[in-house]
Design a protein around this nucleic acid. Structure first.
Lengths: 214, 214
DNA sequence: CCTAAAATGTTGTAATTACAACATACTTTC
DNA sequence: GAAAGTATGTTGTAATTACAACATTTTAGG
């Protein structure tokens, strides 16, 4: 198991190596590998494990019965997911989780939280709180990206956010075209078409997932 | 101040009356009243107060420079809001908070959390975690309500959720037409039109904010 | 290096939505 | 209970999007 990624995670912030080892044991940490495209959780499942990406990345998505996909979030190396469902053990998952590429996931049992002593627990809970509040901001962000009624507006809203985050007008995005379309809730072909128009209009330059705002 | 609403809140679950009184003091609880339409927080503000609705309700919304409103959430009596921003004191608000009707809000200082003893703090943090995770589910829900490409699909997705929550095919919704339109990210006139069609098609019956799924 | 498969781009048409303008219904206030 | 104000419903047209079908480019394997 790749310990160093976990050591740098938000969850274990403020804990030293010995404490982390003990916590991993107490929380029954177990790692599992998944191939690209493989489904990790399906809508309706009940889970009690906090999940951490040690390699690769996963998409949090909803797939309706007509095959339409909506990507709510993309979770990369060093980040957590499914924390809401792990912490509310009576709520079934509303989403699917899917390996966006080959990846490794560490599962941490949240049932075991109650057994920890108050001091350790308070520190861990404070870190968990940081994880969930940040996740909240991510979900809010997506709402802003899908708020504009028109495709160009959505693209610009999204690219603008990424640009601000990366402190640069030039950057890579983590989505391919289909994923970006599913994230912005638009047709893939319409997205491609609009990106072409935006290049012709001199707003952006892009090649594959590398973008430049002009 | 209306103490009873606070006593029944998720935040103070498991605490007795004496403890709650002490906590309210420790967290500098202060109440303030707002009139319908009044803005409580604006995008860009930095806050460190957890907010609780003791009466009325507020909308969490984003208003762009063209006057388009997107309602992310409606927070009613007995619920908290702004917890993400209160707990991440370096992140400026991305949203506006607006009084949907005359309302009273209690503000609780999150800076003061650090001063509490570990046991109390752990209990409080666990409750805060419940608040933030539930808020996460709310945000996810809205994503599903706005996922369908067509207006009718969005209306059905939303009404279906409310129907399931209220365990009934007949229920009131908390939105007026304009608010529902802004929540579902559609034009108000298109929403009205589609609701009429759906009634003609025998899918629903509705009058004002009372709905029945057939 | 060649081939097959996957990803991305392009185009046209049918369907849907945005928007404005107006009609009607319901509320509030005096 | 009239008038004014607010909320909701209706309609038409211009603009946008969905969808399908196909072209082109890129990637992966042999």
């Amino acid at each position: 198991m790749d310990i160093s990624v976990l050591h740098n995670s938000i969850l274990f912030k403020g804990f030293d190596d010995t404490e982390i080892s003990e916590l991993l044991k107490a929380l029954n940490a177990a790692e599992k590998k998944y191939n690209k495209g493989e489904m990790i959780f399906s809508s309706g499942e009940i889970i009690d494990k906090l999940c951490f990406v040690t390699a690769g990345g996963v998409t949090i998505e909803s797939n309706d019965m007509w095959g339409n996909r909506t990507i709510l979030n993309l979770v990369g190396k060093g980040q957590f997911f499914a924390e809401s469902y792990a912490l509310l053990p009576d709520v079934p998952m509303l989403v699917d989780v899917c390996a966006a590429e080959d990846c490794s996931i560490v599962f941490l049992s949240m049932k075991s939280l109650a057994d920890l002593n108050d001091t350790i627990r308070a520190r861990l809970l404070a870190n968990l709180l940081t994880i969930t509040t940040r996740k909240n901001l991510h979900l809010s962000s997506r709402s802003f990206h899908t708020a504009p009624r028109q495709v160009r507006g959505r693209i610009m809203a999204y690219l603008n956010t990424v640009s601000v985050q990366k402190h640069s007008r030039e950057f890579d995005i983590p989505f391919d075209r289909q994923q970006l379309a599913d994230y912005l809730n638009v047709e893939r072909s319409v997205l491609s078409n609009e990106l072409s128009k935006m290049q012709r209009d001199g707003l952006i330059r892009c090649r594959k997932n590398h973008f430049e705002i002009i």
